[in-house]
Each structure stands twice: as C-alpha cells, then as structure tokens.
Simulated scan of single mutants.
Amino acid sequence: MTQNERIKEVRKSLGLTLDKFGERIGLKKSAVSLIENGKNSVTDANIKAICREFGVDYIWLTTGDGEMFVDTDDDFIERIDRIMAGEDEARKNLFKFMLELSDDDIHALEHLMQSAIDFAQKNKKD
C-alpha cells in the first residue's frame, strides 16, 4: 500500500468526506483527492498535519509499519466512554467490577495476567 493509499485509508476509517478531512488539515477537497489518487505527492507538512490532527502514527503513515493510530490516554478514555454509553452490559459490568477491586486484588490480577502471558509465550507453537 502506498503512502497515498494509507492517507485514503485514514480518512475512510474516520468516516470523513474529502471536504471534512481536508478542512481539518488545511487542504481543499480537490487537493486531498489528488493526493489519495497518487496524482500529487504528499508534503512533509501534510504528513505532520495528518498525524497531529487525527492521532495517526507517523511511522505507519510514511512506511506502513506498525499500527495506523497512536494509542493515547485520551483515545483510551474515549473508548471507555463509548462502552459505558453503549448497550453491551457485559463490558460495562467488567469496568464497574474493576472499580470495586482493592489494590491487593488489582496486584493479584496483574500477577495472574502476567503468568498467563508467560505461559502462552513459553508454550507458543511456531
């Protein structure tokens, strides 16, 4: 996938029109379209604006390596908010349960999770 195609993938994954995407990074709709279609090259300023405005990982956008978006605490909080506002009671209850745990319970859970990870890595079949 080319850098231009990755830009289109970012825009589509965010559900933005060419116009709205361009507006947020200071480009006209036609300029975004030309970039996405590979007719115009992407400037370093465009890349930085996309990464800054949409939380896109610079390495992913420039090389294709890694994940599309940078994980930030704000992203995490937003995801929790969406879960708590949604209809999935199991997910909501899991968060509520975690809030009720004592510090000792959290440490025990952390130990259990680390043991499970270690076990899985040790017994991983290649």
Score class of each variant (00 low, 15 high):
Asp88Ile: 05
Ser115Ile: 09
Lys12Leu: 14
Ser30Ile: 12
Gln114Arg: 15
Lys96Tyr: 15
Glu110Asp: 15
Asn40Val: 09
Ala108Trp: 02
Leu18Phe: 12
Ala49Phe: 01
Ala90Asp: 08
Ala49Glu: 02
Arg79Asp: 06
Met98His: 06
Leu34Glu: 12
Arg82Gly: 07
Gly66Gln: 02
Asp74Ser: 05
Val42Asn: 08
Arg24Trp: 10
Arg24Ile: 05
Val10Ala: 12
Gly22Met: 14
Ile50Pro: 08
Gly38Arg: 01
Thr43Ala: 14
Ser30Asp: 13
Met98Tyr: 11
Ser30Val: 14
Val56Ile: 10
Leu18Gln: 14
Leu61Gln: 03
Gln114Gly: 08
Asp19Glu: 15
Thr62Cys: 06
Gly15Glu: 12
Asp118Met: 10
Ile50Arg: 03
Ile77Val: 07
Ala45Cys: 05
Asp88Ser: 09
Asp103Trp: 10
Val56Thr: 03
Leu18Asn: 07
Ala45Tyr: 07
Asp103Ser: 12
Ile59Thr: 02
Lys8Cys: 10
Arg52Lys: 14
Lys12Val: 14
Leu16Tyr: 02
Glu67Met: 11
Met68Asp: 03
Asp73Arg: 00
Gly86Ala: 10
His111Lys: 15
Met98Asp: 05
Gly66Glu: 01
Gly26Cys: 06
Ile83Lys: 01
Lys124Gly: 09
Gly26Tyr: 04
Leu61Lys: 02
Ser33Trp: 03
Ile35Arg: 08
Asp105Phe: 07
Thr17Asp: 09
Cys51Gly: 08
Asn37Val: 11
Thr72Ile: 00
Val70His: 01
Asp71Asn: 10
Gly22Asn: 10
Lys28Pro: 10
Lys29Phe: 06
Lys124Ile: 06
Gly26Arg: 01
Ala45Val: 13
Glu89Lys: 08
Ala31Arg: 02
Ile7Glu: 06
Glu23Leu: 10
Ile106Val: 15
Cys51Ala: 09
His107Pro: 00
Lys39Arg: 15
Asn40Glu: 11
Lys124Ser: 12
Thr72Val: 01
Asn93His: 10
Ile35Tyr: 05
Val10Gly: 06
Leu27Arg: 15
Asp57Asn: 14
Arg91Ile: 06
Ala31Phe: 04
Asn40Ala: 13
Ile117Ser: 03
Ala31His: 11
Lys48Trp: 01
Phe69Trp: 01
Asp73Lys: 01
Glu23Tyr: 13
Asp65Lys: 02
Gly64Asn: 04
Gly26Asp: 12
Ile7Trp: 04
Val32Arg: 03
Ile47Tyr: 04
Glu23Lys: 10
His107Arg: 14
Ser33Ala: 13
Leu61Met: 08
Arg52Ser: 10
Gln114Tyr: 15
Arg91Glu: 15
Tyr58Ser: 00
Lys92Phe: 07
Lys124Pro: 00
Lys48Asn: 13
Arg11His: 07
Gly26Thr: 06
Gly55Met: 02
Asp126Phe: 04
Val70Arg: 03
Glu87Arg: 09
Ser33Tyr: 03
Asp104Gln: 15
Glu110Gly: 11
Gln121Tyr: 11
Gly22Gln: 11
Lys92Leu: 03
Ile117Met: 07
Ala85Thr: 02
Glu89Gly: 02
Gln121Pro: 00
Ala31Cys: 06
Asn46Pro: 06
Gly38Met: 07
Leu61His: 04
Met1Ala: 13
Asp105Val: 02
Lys28Asp: 12
Glu110Ser: 15
His111Trp: 13
Cys51Tyr: 03
Arg82Ser: 13
Leu101Asn: 09
Glu89Met: 07
Lys28Trp: 05
Glu5Ile: 04
Gln114Ser: 14
Lys20Gly: 12
Ala90Ser: 10
